[in-house]
């Protein structure tokens, strides 16, 4: 089973075999501009839905990245530490931030699908 969902905080959530990979959308990386630093959560950390667990910094400003759903962080993208601009180049693939095992898979299904997110971005 594989599905991609989106949050109102401009994160994407890709669920594959019960593990969610989280990154920020192309819209988000464009809005942020050149990304120069990413701070990632500790693997193993239990996080609540909506909890700020990572930080992304552009030249201009710092922005929080939130856990889209509750769960346990299993892995982070170490490549971003050395090459934070990977988020600008490949927001939807190589620039992923972290993976987590959701406490409740239904919480992911409740997020926006691609069409709903596209409609949401149109309203901004």
């Amino acid at each position: 089973m594989s599905e991609i969902r989106f949050t109102h905080d401009h994160e994407w959530v890709h669920l594959i075999d019960g593990v969610a990979t989280i990154g920020i959308t192309d819209h988000a990386q464009q809005a942020l501009g050149d990304i120069v630093f990413v701070e990632l959560p500790q693997p193993g950390r239990e996080v609540a839905a909506g909890e700020a667990i990572a930080v992304v910094e552009s030249v201009k400003a710092a922005s929080d990245i939130y856990a889209p759903v509750a769960g346990r962080v299993t892995e982070v993208n170490a490549e971003l530490t050395a090459d934070p601009a990977l988020v600008n180049r490949e927001p939807a693939s190589g620039g992923w931030f972290f993976k987590l095992v959701p406490a409740d898979l239904a919480a992911i299904a409740a997020l926006m699908d691609e069409a709903a997110y596209a409609a949401f971005v149109e309203t901004l």
Binding site: D9, H10, E11, I24, A28, A31, L32, A61, S63, D64, I65, Y66, L124
Partner: peptide, 8 residues
């Protein structure tokens, strides 16, 4: 992601 809105 926060502060993505702009002022009038």
């Amino acid at each position: 992601m926060t502060n993505m809105q702009t002022d009038p």
